[in-house]
Computed example of a mutant assay.
Amino acid sequence: MRTVRILAAAALAVGGVLGAGGAAAADTPAPSTSASPGGKTAGPTEAGTAFRTATPVRPGQRATADASTGDYLYWVLPLDWGRRATVRAQVKLPASAGRHGASTWQLDVYDGLRRRQACTYGKQTAAAAKEAASVELSCTLRTVRPGAETWANDPLPGSYYVRLTVLDAAQEDLGLPVRAEIETTVSDTGGAFAVDGALAAPLVPGITAQRAEAKGSAKKQPAAAGEPEGGWSGGRWSDRWVWTAAGGVLGALAGVFGYSLTRGRGRPSRVPPGS
């Protein structure tokens, strides 16, 4: 009976830990978007031409821009730790009758330190034939980590810049009008990529100075361009801790149960008196 009571108490403890972990995971802020009446998520209709003028866009939004062949188009979006992002782009080309040859387009993604991030898979560079009506590109980034060594190039929480441009085109085709569209989808990988350390602040250029200036005044501290509505998680919570705690409880439970079995088998039998 004592062993049964211990088992029941341990099971309740495990259930409590998992329940708390589920609630905490539910409270983890995630980027949110607003849907347009047509069912698609509304997004910006222009793009910047440099890092400093990049147009903010949120994950799940479809951003569009009318530009000219040869322009550099920039957007910026927030990515928190534990997120794995896939950026997709489509360029609608002018009528083939007005073009003089094929073209090659490229999609690049940079972090808040303007370090070019590698794509784990996707078609980052694509060629369009002279007769093609459009060209599509994609890039799936590595999972964003809460912290990393200073020498590492791991993706970290903060702003991510998307750049779309033509790499090669006929000289006569430069300046022809094109229409670009990008959309970013984000999946949550949980605590599989969590580490013990975390950044003191996300990599968002310019926001540190702005907040320091607003700290001593009555002004509300500005939010970073494209910052998640619920704020940055900062890497303090991970469901890895839930399973670590649950594993510890189950390990203790197994030790108690094994001890009860070995103690019962090793106890000497009683000898009746007078025998």
Rank of each mutant, 00 (worst) to 15 (best):
A9P: 02
L250H: 06
N153T: 11
N153W: 03
T3M: 10
G60T: 14
L113V: 03
S34E: 11
Y161L: 02
A201S: 07
G21E: 12
D66V: 09
R267V: 12
A246R: 10
T41W: 04
P146N: 15
G19W: 13
W243I: 07
A25C: 07
G43P: 11
L18W: 09
A254M: 14
G226A: 04
A102E: 14
Q90H: 06
A26K: 00
Q124R: 12
G206Q: 08
A8G: 05
I182H: 05
K92F: 09
D196P: 10
A246P: 14
P272D: 01
G231A: 12
A132I: 05
L141M: 13
D111N: 14
A95F: 02
K123W: 05
A42G: 12
T49L: 11
A50E: 13
L164G: 01
A194R: 03
R114N: 06
A201P: 02
G258A: 12
A225T: 12
T189R: 15
T64Y: 03
V109W: 06
L93Y: 05
N153C: 00
A54R: 00
D66A: 15
R58E: 07
Y74S: 04
T185D: 14
H100Q: 05
V87H: 06
A246C: 09
L167Q: 14
G266S: 13
A85Q: 08
A67C: 06
A89P: 03
A132S: 15
S34W: 02
A63C: 07
T33D: 00
G158A: 05
A218M: 09
E149D: 12
P268G: 11
A200F: 13
A95W: 03
A254E: 10
R163M: 05
D71R: 00
S269C: 00
C139N: 05
P202F: 13
E131F: 08
Y110G: 06
T69Y: 01
E227A: 13
A126E: 15
D188Y: 12
V109Y: 05
A212N: 04
T69W: 02
T45V: 08
Y74K: 07
L176N: 04
R62W: 01
